[in-house]
Design a protein around this nucleic acid. Structure first.
Lengths: 231, 231
DNA sequence: CGACCGTTTGAGATCCTTCAATACCAGTGG
DNA sequence: CCACTGGTATTGAAGGATCTCAAACGGTCG
């Protein structure tokens, strides 16, 4: 079984990684050969928009925020990738957004030049990357609908729903991994507006907050109606 | 030279098509073998969101609008693809947005099943598709910044700039291929707000309108400053 | 010419932002 | 232990940007 180590402490099984999904064990071995592990502290910046994209990263654990900035400092967060997501797949060689760790993060790193060679030589890897990128594109397009056409309440409801998985039911409590400010920059709102939307849904009995960083869903059907603007 | 015909009238040189870029002439031949041409009339719908994606399309000429709808009819336009763009690359088999012709459109069609086989068998095609999809993703992420964080004036300026090419200079006039309403649904605004933004930039001497569907750029530097929020 | 469609412009309403005050919590040092 | 601090969240009040509704304009086409 292929593994790689970071300073001999944590170990990662390569075949469990997202880049390797669907590839032969021989291919996995060749990917492992160019991998190294890396850790990020909270708020550590992995790369900035416009930086040379000399590595491709796969998140092993933790969460980051990806964002773009306008010259005056306005920020749009593109997403909050977690374990299994790939970062830095910028075909032109420059990062198109910044990436910053939210909490502690572990990454698997592939030097870009070696990775490029693998893409050409490993049948199946290019297709795998196409699938990954297509999924991201679909996600980005859903977000365009949210950003362009939904009200603040609908935006916040959509965000909370995106945190759930298929087997989340009313009554369940989940972690809210990001601050109000991050939610706001993700949804194109201010943090006050996000806070008001959350308060309103609590008042309306749709959800509740055991503490600031947890949500308890009380009425998921209603939440879904709010998110899609149904009524 | 590989060509395909529609009812014996128009002919298309396969090697000029975007799917084929960078592929061997043998590969081009195999792509040509599964191609057919199709024409769309203005306002004709190619597919709706949620439809089975049984074909992949490459635009030969004309322009379409791609959009998503909310249940109550709010519309977000994802883009206005033109010649060379690929449509229907939905890896899960369902279209994730609707596609509708704006004017007359000619398409090159590939049945999905045959196309999928080619992706597996033609080395280079998967990578080509990855590149195409990555470009679209980058584009979508730029649009997320515009939708989430820019003012109406900045949005309209950004849209107009996206219509220019690198050698457009102040003084040049270009076609405005879409209505105010389409611009609005693309930028997350109302058509009135778009109209007011255009009027204001005309008042300020940034641009002018010989007629409703043409723009003359008078001060491209200023337009760029407006688009990025610089000042 | 009249009907129609897209555009422009105005006036008022609405939603979201801005600014400000307060609350809350964890960490720190006296 | 507790006061102090900094970061985050909540809530209120006022302002502003965009939307809504409405009227008028201009070009195209039968």
């Amino acid at each position: 079984m292929q593994t790689i180590a970071l300073s001999s402490t944590p170990q990662v099984q390569m075949s469990a990684l997202s880049v390797c999904k669907g590839l032969s064990s021989q291919a996995v071995g060749r990917i492992a050969a160019i991998s190294t592990l890396r850790k990020l502290a909270p708020r550590e910046v992995l790369f900035m928009e416009g930086d040379e994209a000399d590595h491709i990263y796969e998140i092993v654990s933790g969460m980051l925020r990806l964002y773009k900035l306008l010259p005056d400092g306005r920020r749009q967060i593109m997403g909050f990738p977690t374990a299994g997501h790939l970062l830095g797949l910028a075909p032109e060689g420059l990062h198109v957004y910044a990436a910053e760790a939210i909490g502690d993060v572990t990454l698997c790193c592939y030097p870009r030049s070696s990775f490029d060679r693998l893409v050409d030589n490993l049948p199946g890897l290019a297709r795998r990357l196409w699938t990954v990128t297509s999924d991201e594109l679909r996600f980005a397009q859903d977000q365009m609908l949210t950003l362009g056409r939904k009200s603040s309440l609908e935006k916040v409801a959509s965000f909370l729903l995106a945190l759930t998985d298929p087997n989340t039911e009313s009554g369940k409590t989940i972690a809210l991994p990001v601050t109000r400010g991050d939610m706001a920059d993700y949804l194109g709102l201010t943090l006050e507006t996000v806070s008001r939307a959350l308060s309103r849904m609590r008042r309306d009995g749709v959800l509740d907050f055991p503490c600031v960083d947890r949500v308890r869903f009380l009425d998921l059907d209603r939440l879904e109606e709010i998110a899609t603007g149904d009524e």
